[in-house]
Write a protein that binds this DNA or RNA. Structure first.
Lengths: 131, 131
DNA sequence: CGCCATAGTATCATTTTTGATACTACTACT
DNA sequence: AGTAGTAGTATCAAAAATGATACTATGGCG
């Protein structure tokens, strides 16, 4: 994403990369949403809603729209019955996966209790990085 | 930081590492504050205030206190004349530097215009990672 | 027809974050 | 005694993010 299509253009204009990133990934849920899509390749709206404990439907919709507008995820509508929507990572989103993975690994190592057991296997993480 | 000393304990209790990280680094300025302290080793309050374009004194104070409470930075008061305060990274903060660096490099590569020239040399980045 | 599941939208309230502004405390210097 | 520079605090207002709730649209099924 090298063109200026981000939601908050003032930040982009100054191009303080770190500020832009913080703006783009602002909010309580963005990291987690991206992670869930990354680890599962595809995520449906309903599954995300049930996975993100405490989020409301309207907030999830808004977060997903922002991630879409900022070019991280792609939204595919399936008109089968019942109709549903699938979210996948775009090329930009995929390029962000190594950063996301490092964040996850750091968080597991430093923010969790010593007896915390990660739900993600080394294989999952490795696969994520090799895509 | 493997003990439960974070500001928002509910998140910590559930230990969803990604959520904890997003909570701990919430706000418009945290990434940038950490980056400025990391790249300069030491930062004074006044310098940070002038570096972070648009932040107010009270907001900067609050952000710094939160980073301190969450164990990322250390606050050292110098009673010389005029007295001043210096902020440095703690061990936890230093352990986060590789993540921060990767975030910065990704942001420069993907969020900035093609003609953007980084103000940071490769040596600075390398040094940052070798600490 | 009424109900289910899907994935929303719309509206308003609440909470959280940030900003604006004015104030304090310290002491060296003039 | 007054001023300057440091790093704050305190209070209130404004803005942004999130939540609660009710609503829509689709079409199959009993």
């Amino acid at each position: 994403m090298t063109d200026n299509k981000f939601r908050k253009r003032e930040v982009m204009a100054r191009c303080v990369p770190m500020s832009t990133l913080q703006t783009v990934l602002s909010g309580k849920w963005k990291f987690l949403i991206l992670w869930y899509i990354a680890i599962n390749k595809v995520q449906r709206f309903g599954v995300l809603l049930r996975s993100l404990d405490g989020i409301t439907q309207s907030t999830l919709t808004k977060q997903l729209r922002e991630l879409e507008d900022d070019g991280f995820i792609h939204r595919e509508i399936y008109k089968e019955m019942p109709p549903h929507v699938e979210y996948t990572l775009t090329e930009l989103g995929k390029s962000f996966v190594p950063v996301l993975t490092q964040m996850m690994m750091w968080s597991q190592a430093h923010l969790c209790a010593p007896d915390y057991v990660s739900p993600y296997t080394e294989e999952q993480i490795k696969e994520l990085l090799n895509q």
